[in-house]
């Protein structure tokens, strides 16, 4: 499948800022399952951009803007060819071993409630992949889809106490749950044709990957109740959504900021 992606992020500041420093994780890479045909990053002001990689091996772009600046728009767009994959990640740039992804973070700390839910969800499963699929489906059934922009800083525990959950929240609960089973799990940020429903999405997509020995990293999207397939484009992985954030930023200046995000993912017209 050939997917066309447009992802706009706009920050508006109530008073002009003296300086902006941002780390962008907005660049997908080739794997065996996805080929980046074209990709552009565009900023609407005078910014210095520097490519690099973070500790998880994700491609990052450092963005530096000297103020005064009262708004900035960061736009990425491009086309990615995807294969009809089986949900197993092949040929990704891996720099850290699966064992690292057993550690909890504040956002993915499991509670007794999550552990209990997990135990009963997977009890009938036979092999590990089967158990993880059960967990994925159980989480999908457990929540009503929240189509708003995810709340930054909401933990898995907080999310689990609610009825409605964004893809990001569900992925966090899945990660916390998988780790209670002793399964390494991580957050993936990227794009999906079906995420959030509708054409204009309020955020990039987020799902989870769990490590199954002998198979590798297997993608699970609890918000869709399925494994990631050719409708998905991976961009970044980390222990949680904060580590894989599309934009991590810092600004020098007073006042408030307002963020607008618009993501469209559609089959490319040839």
């Amino acid at each position: 499948m050939r997917l066309s992606i447009d992802h706009h992020t706009i920050y508006r500041f109530s008073v002009p800022q003296g300086r902006l420093t941002q780390m962008l994780r907005l660049t997908p890479e080739d794997t065996h399952d996805q080929t980046v045909a074209s990709w552009h990053l565009h900023v609407d002001c005078d910014a210095r951009l520097r490519p690099g990689r973070d500790g998880f091996g994700n491609k990052v772009t450092m963005l530096y803007v000297a103020g005064p600046i009262d708004s900035i728009e960061i736009a990425v767009s491009g086309e990615v060819l995807t294969n009809s994959a089986d949900g197993v990640v092949h040929g990704a740039h891996e720099v850290l071993p699966p064992a690292l992804f057993l550690r909890a973070t504040p956002l993915t700390l499991a509670t007794a409630a999550i552990a209990d839910f997990t135990a009963s969800a997977v009890s009938a499963g036979t092999d590990l992949v089967g158990r993880l699929h059960r967990l994925n489906l159980a989480l999908n059934a457990r929540f009503v889809a929240d189509r708003d922009r995810p709340v930054t800083g909401r933990t898995a525990a907080q999310a689990f106490a609610l009825d409605r959950a964004t893809p990001r929240d569900m992925a966090h609960v899945f990660i916390a749950a998988a780790r209670t089973l002793g399964v390494p799990a991580r957050y993936v940020s990227g794009y999906s044709r079906f995420a959030f429903g509708g054409e204009h999405r309020p955020a990039p997509h987020g799902w989870a990957e769990a490590y199954v020995a002998g198979l590798g990293w297997v993608a699970f999207d609890p918000s869709a109740g399925r494994s990631a397939d050719e409708a998905y484009v991976r961009v970044a992985v980390a222990l949680d959504a904060a580590g894989a954030a599309a934009v991590a930023g810092s600004r020098l200046g007073e006042g408030d900021e307002e963020m607008d995000v618009d993501v469209t993912v559609a089959p490319a017209s040839d």
Binding site: D54, G55, F56, V95, P97, A99, L100, L102, R103, L239
Partner: peptide, 18 residues
């Protein structure tokens, strides 16, 4: 033992590879 490293909060994945 690898888990002594990877499970240890003092091992900082944020700067791995640098």
């Amino acid at each position: 033992p690898p888990d002594l490293i990877f499970g240890n909060a003092q091992f900082r994945p944020e700067i791995a590879g640098m």
